[in-house]
């Protein structure tokens, strides 16, 4: 746990402000059984800060504690120790619920209601006039592309359709802060693209998004910053572009070089004197990074992986 490097890098994200929307301090969750005996240590001393206007990704293999973190931030779980703050307050406070939206990992909706009834029901739990509610419901149904099935009961819906109505439900109150737990599972490629576009659009509207996934490609495209969890421990956190840079390697890209020229460049580089057309750190894919972290973590459990990475230096 040597580095605390990444926090200030968020300032570089154009739309992110310095206002901290989500904060966890030493957040720990131990699941216990009925008798109070310890079953699983799902989350170990997590420190996290998410700022207004950023898209923050939580990445990790199955069972790494992503959903647990989210539930703690939503007040669905009580921390075993440590603290979770949303808008600077205890997440179980009702007042903050006006300002958040949540898409659970599976759609936990009432299957005997139709899509329209579902949105109508959740809409009524918020303080908004009936006319605004109706307008929003129309807009959201349109947005998630379920106009054609809005009167059918959810038990007849396919998985992807349920996901879509779940998303609409999460946005019913036009929230400032949106929790998306694996938003792309169950969606077709087009749906995934739409979901990513939506997340980016939400950011453009100035909203903060906390998104979890194990679909690495999803986060790579959209997240401003990510945190990588493994077995309940924070392994890595930082800006996506920074995390993916490999600092002890250099990549040169050029166009129209002859073989002689290439040879020459090689020599030039050897002499450290040539004019470089393009020189930068090569990027790995998130997948490679992820796998290496997991391997590293399994080899040396309890340690933060690859602590030498320091993106603030770039």
């Amino acid at each position: 746990m040597a580095t605390t490097e990444t926090m200030d890098s968020a300032a570089e994200t154009p739309s992110a402000s310095n206002e901290i929307v989500i904060e966890t301090r030493n957040l720990t969750k131990v699941y216990r059984d009925f008798w109070g005996r310890q079953k699983v240590r799902a989350l170990k001393a997590l420190d996290l800060e998410v700022r207004r206007g950023e898209i923050f990704g939580l990445l990790g293999p199955n069972g790494s504690g992503k959903s647990t973190t989210m539930k703690l931030l939503l007040g669905l779980l009580f921390p075993t120790s440590g603290q979770a703050l949303v808008f600077g307050e205890d997440p179980s406070k009702v007042s903050i619920k006006e300002r958040i939206g949540y898409l659970p990992e599976e759609s936990y909706l009432y299957r005997f209601l139709s899509a329209r009834e579902t949105l109508e029901f959740y809409g009524r739990l918020f303080d908004m006039p009936a006319s605004v509610r109706r307008e929003r419901i129309d807009k959201l149904i349109e947005m998630v592309g379920l106009k054609w099935a809005e009167r059918r009961q959810l038990k007849e819906y396919s998985k992807g359709m349920t996901r879509r109505i779940g998303l609409a439900q999460a946005l019913i109150n036009d929230p400032e802060l949106i929790f998306l737990d694996e938003p792309t599972t169950g969606l077709d490629p087009l749906g995934i693209r739409e979901m990513k576009d939506l997340i980016l659009r939400l950011r453009d509207e100035g909203k903060t998004v906390l998104v979890t996934s194990h679909q690495l490609a999803d986060l790579q495209d959209v997240a401003d910053r990510i945190a990588i969890l493994h077995q309940g421990e924070l392994k890595e956190m930082g800006r996506v572009d920074a995390l993916l840079k490999v600092r002890d390697e250099t990549q040169i890209r050029a166009r129209g070089l002859s073989d002689a020229a290439k040879e020459e460049i090689r020599q030039v580089i050897q002499r450290h004197e040539a004019e470089l057309i393009d020189i930068e750190n090569p990027t790995t894919t998130l997948e490679e990074l992820f796998l290496s972290i997991v391997r590293d973590s399994e080899a040396r459990p309890g340690r933060r992986a690859r602590v030498d990475r320091d993106d603030s230096a770039d």
Partner: peptide
């Protein structure tokens, strides 16, 4: 877990 969705609304 339908209650999760309810709990994350201001109820």
């Amino acid at each position: 877990k339908t209650i999760y969705t309810i709990y994350t609304k201001p109820v």
